[in-house]
Write a protein that binds this DNA or RNA. Structure first.
Lengths: 122, 122
DNA sequence: ACAAGTACTTACCCTAAAGTATGTATCATG
DNA sequence: CATGATACATACTTTAGGGTAAGTACTTGT
């Protein structure tokens, strides 16, 4: 899952930011172009892998599972696989994942305000 | 300020995410290891360039102004320079920047919950 | 027997973001 | 006359994330 160089200032600074900054900690988990979109689609109900794929046509399969795996590793989504063939795998938000929804809504709210020009340029 | 290649799928997908996803829009503005930290320091009061530098020893000067410039361009911080020498430049949060504080607090709150194990692993 | 659907995996490439190092202009002070 | 403080700028390198393309295993339908 994308190997990382252990000894680089960029990793050290990441660590620094992760420790010092609870905001960075969240962004590590929901950052990247696709994660918020995936989370959004899961917030409207459990979805199969193929459903997600169809819901987000622009994403490649590599990016989709890569992010799903990361979200699962971070305990934000839960993967359930029925041991049948053809496979039947469902993804859903965990408690922690659901806990992020207010954060996500706050962000969305800010964006709409900003785009509506609610904040004067001062 | 870091030239960008206009024609690449990564840019297209970024654009897609920015249009489709208000969350990504926020993260574009406060993403990166240092921006949240800078914003935090400004949220406790206006700061001179050199004060920020001292407050965040691990950051390089390049990263510091680069992010300050971006934040200014995004209308999140305001730069005020007194036309004297030695220079006296102050940075402060704009209305839009202050509008982000609830978002930032929501993120911090989630992190603390998560680290305290409030979310059970299911 | 061959295509289609399920859910992935893997090898390789490209770029934006981050970091390193050094330089600039102006003035005050020892 | 050279050092320190102010607030930057700029060339050059590295790396982590994102993208492309192709393959896997197993079954059902035609």
């Amino acid at each position: 899952m994308t190997a990382i160089k252990e000894s680089s200032t960029i990793q050290e600074n990441k660590q620094y930011a992760l420790d010092k900054c609870p905001v960075t900690y969240v962004m590590e988990k929901i950052g990247g172009y696709w994660k918020p979109i995936i989370i959004y689609h899961l917030s409207t109900g459990n979805k199969r892998y193929s459903e997600l794929k169809r819901a987000i046509p622009a994403i490649t399969e590599k990016m989709l599972i890569q992010h799903l795996k990361q979200l699962e590793a971070d305990n934000l989504v839960i993967r359930e696989a029925k041991p049948i063939v053809p496979p039947f795998v469902t993804y859903s938000l965990s408690d922690a994942g659901n806990g992020l929804l207010p954060v996500i809504e706050a962000m969305a709210a800010w964006t709409f305000k900003e785009k509506d020009g609610i904040f004067k340029t001062k």
